[in-house]
Amino acid sequence: MAQFRLQGSRVLAVDLAGDAVKARNGSMVAYTGQMTFKKLSGGGDGLRGMVTRRLTGEQMTVMEVQGKGTCFFAAQATEINLVRLNGETLFVEADNLLCTEAGLRTGTTFTGLNGMASGDGLFTTKVEGSGWAAVTSNGPAVILRVSQGMPLRVDPGAYVAHTGNLNRSLKSGAGWTTLMGEGGGEAVQAEFTGEGLVYVQPSEKITFGGDV
């Protein structure tokens, strides 16, 4: 059973006892003990996943790390958030997924036009099962709870991941003033309704709707 812990806030330490984790290719910064690193083609989802990822553009180069000891992972000094899954599903952009326990299933899922307009692409990565996953964010993520009667709207550029049973829909804050160059700066928003948690980073990616 791999043990995930944070070493500081930007380095992930995983204690392995002969078992394996899947991590983003090249994200290992140090290890103790004996480790083997094996590149998994196509995001480690098998042949079908490989084809899907190629087709959907939700590409992920993943390696399998197996051994005894402690392995340290980091990605460009971004903050690392540990997510414990107990049978829930984590939806995360492939760019933000750093490491998962080998027992978790990863795959791609269709987010529809919502994703496209926000610049996140049509597809997103899905992580299912029980175990630990590590998600990166630019600045420590703020975790916001969504429940019935308490919907949340998020700037698509600041969205990192979400868990639980959430509906995501795109809302437009744009009006006729946007066309005149006097928009509110928040023309595209993603609305989350249902029950779950949304991870939001304190920074914004450059997105299509970002400057409108």
Partner: peptide, 10 residues
Amino acid sequence: LQKGKMVAYY
């Protein structure tokens, strides 16, 4: 607020 600095709201 400055344009584009909102990241989320209820």
